[in-house]
């Protein structure tokens, strides 16, 4: 039953939703089995539209699961909770609030902290993500990378048991993305929070994660698990390490098999998310 060594345990998770336009039930994820160990950074990669973001939304409690079980520390996940915090693909910042105001929004919504405490801690968090001096700036005055730092700081301030990251760097340009990966690892190594990272970028997954899980094409399921035995701390040069390239080949092959399926099966139903 419940594996004590696992932080997050997914067993046979099925996620379906109703598509109003085609009036049919859409199966995004079918039978996901995986575990995230305490203090581990696990990355999920998979072909686009494989249901990896959908799965993450279920872990956050934003989507109900239709089958199987999803537990965090042995407790069933039913709705969003304080033990999880999401870093979204789109920053989702309140444009009328400053950086500081946005960073405290998470704890404000949870109602767990007094305002003065929230502000004091938010300032530390802002420094940690490298935005010192921008506390009073508005989101529209920030670059995409800086907005994602705010997004990250907002999640970190709630001090969750588990950090959920939904392709947070996907919309950034290549150089900014690499810098953000480096920064994320730096921040993560200070807190060692259990983290689940969704991405379609194979290099990013290998560079960040302790283990990489490859999803099949839709309906998504775990295809294989790759242990990443690269020493930490990792700097960006590791991406040219022979061992790194071996992992990349392995995962690339695995995804390639999924993409090589008959075209009509891929076109059949491209999901919205």
């Amino acid at each position: 039953m419940y594996d004590r060594s696992a932080k997050l345990a997914a067993k046979g998770v099925v996620i379906e939703y109703w598509l109003q336009r085609s009036r049919s039930l859409f199966t995004a994820v079918k039978g996901v089995d995986l575990e995230v160990r305490p203090g581990e950074l696990l990355a999920i990669v998979g072909p686009s539209g494989c249901g990896k973001t959908t799965f993450l939304n279920a872990v956050d409690g934003l989507l109900p699961i239709a089958g199987g079980s999803l537990t965090l520390d042995g407790r069933e996940i039913r709705k969003p909770g304080r033990d999880r915090a999401m870093v979204f693909q789109q920053p989702g910042l309140l444009p009328w609030r400053t950086v500081l105001g946005n960073v405290i929004f998470g704890v404000e919504a949870q109602g767990t902290m007094s305002k003065s405490e929230a502000i004091a801690r938010a300032k530390q968090q802002i420094e940690l993500v490298g935005l010192k001096g921008f506390e009073d700036a508005y989101p529209l005055e920030l670059s995409g990378g800086m907005q994602q730092r705010v997004n990250l700081a907002r999640a970190l301030l709630t001090d969750p048991e588990m950090l959920l990251l939904d392709e947070p760097f996907a919309a950034l340009d290549a150089q900014t993305r690499e810098m953000m990966q480096l920064e994320l690892l730096k921040i993560w190594s200070q807190t060692r929070k259990t983290a689940l990272f969704i991405t379609h970028d194979i290099k990013e997954a290998i560079y960040l994660a302790d283990r990489v899980i490859v999803f099949t094409r839709r309906p998504g399921r775990v295809k294989n698990v790759v242990d990443i035995n690269l020493s930490r701390p990792r700097d960006l040069r590791i991406k040219r390490d022979p061992q790194f390239l071996t992992y990349e080949d392995e995962i690339w092959e695995s995804i390639q098999e999924e993409l090589a399926m008959p075209a009509e099966r891929l076109i059949a139903g491209i999901p919205a998310a």
Partner: peptide, 18 residues
Amino acid sequence: EAALLRVARSFGASDALT
């Protein structure tokens, strides 16, 4: 914006706070 509502929901904001 739907994205903002999702953020609020994800952090467990009450309806009144949202």
